[in-house]
Write a protein that binds this DNA or RNA. Structure first.
Lengths: 209, 209
DNA sequence: TATTGTTTGTAACTAATGTTACAGAGTGAG
DNA sequence: CTCACTCTGTAACATTAGTTACAAACAATA
């Protein structure tokens, strides 16, 4: 597991001395598919660095409605957790394991020192922020400018991309939640996508063609 | 003008030595109402620090459709410009002066050094990121969870907040653009708001009650 | 195999938003 | 004042998305 951590950090441009430190102060954490890692209202003491698997970051409103913001994959970290922690604020989103995943949990208390000392870490952190901004903007684009039909198709393609699999194992209900719509609407539009030979529908499974 | 800069920076917690530096290397810039400050596709060499006035940050799609992301007010800076510049990317949003405004333009080249040297600057930058994340999330909330009627009312209240004025001098067409809808729809819903005694409509002017 | 719960398909209807078209009111330049 | 232009109000209609209701297919397990 430490090998994976090392190679991902190296890939991210982190210098060897800091890789050492991160290895020493962090602890591993496994998360099974569907496991809830961060809940709204909690405060993060750890910066979660994804070793493998996929996490989803979801926004919730007061009535329990939801919308998917983006996925986190290997080598990435949750910039919004950082932002929250640095400001001492509560998280206002939830993070769930979309597949069995492994994280490296790094105590936030080291962040300021590292940002000061390591140029490579500054770069990594700012790059993370940038990537998340981009993802949020893309999410806003989808919600704002696309019809639900297009958004659904984009959702499936994004999911394919994140999980590196042409098969998506979700119920229509689950998809509807990520898009903040109803199951009936999703079923209707999926059927339409199937009729246009873009996907194939089975129970709890959608294959992208 | 330098007085204003100084007091805003002090308020933001920036230490005196850095305030000096910022005063020395920055230059003032005035922007008249409606002036375009950042266009999609450009690259920012300066960090724009708002001294007074209000700027709007707007996202555009390929067909020229738009949506307002948030306003920037005195003492704030455009975290997305920072993010873009640090990563050497092009801006993918536009920034417009909503009122006559004055900015302090600080060359980005100093940022890394300041982040390294000044704890107060790290705090300011990370706080800016946090605030922008929050604003983007709030925007996502509005688009996702609110009906257009509610979104429009919230838009008017936000505008009131940003400009510190109960009178909004915009045409329905302009409002429609910020919400990515059509003028007719905005007129319809404004009329509804007027019927519920929440606003008063005149030509090019909406008063919030 | 029988039973139960989950998932999907579909129809019929409602609500929200978008579009087109046109009239009339207000404004500024000449 | 007149003309040209912009802005607003409103009706009629189209499209998209949300809701309710129910049946059938499938899966798990007792």
């Amino acid at each position: 597991m430490k090998d994976l951590l090392q190679s991902l950090l190296k890939e991210a441009g982190i210098e060897p001395a800091l890789i050492e430190e991160i290895q020493e102060v962090g602890v591993p954490k496994k998360a099974a598919t569907g496991e809830l890692l961060i809940t709204p209202g909690s405060t993060s003491m750890y910066m979660p660095f994804v070793l493998n698997g996929v996490l989803s970051v979801v926004r919730q409103d007061d009535n329990g409605n939801e919308i998917l913001l983006y996925y986190l994959e290997g080598g990435e970290t949750c910039a919004m957790s950082l932002a929250c922690c640095i400001e001492g604020k509560k998280n206002d989103f939830k993070v769930t394991a979309e597949e069995d995943s492994v994280l490296w949990m790094v105590p936030m208390s080291h962040l300021d020192k590292w940002i000061q000392e390591y140029k490579s870490f500054r770069k990594y952190i700012f790059s993370s922020y940038q990537v998340r901004f981009d993802e949020l903007l893309e999410t806003i684009d989808s919600i704002t400018f696309l019809k639900l039909y297009e958004r659904l198709y984009k959702y499936l393609l994004d999911k394919k991309q994140a999980t590196r699999s042409y098969e998506i194992n979700m119920s229509h209900e689950q998809i509807a939640q990520h898009l903040n719509t109803s199951r009936v609407v999703v079923s209707r539009l999926l059927k339409q996508l199937e009729n246009e030979n873009k996907i194939e529908i089975e129970r709890n499974k959608i294959s992208i063609l």
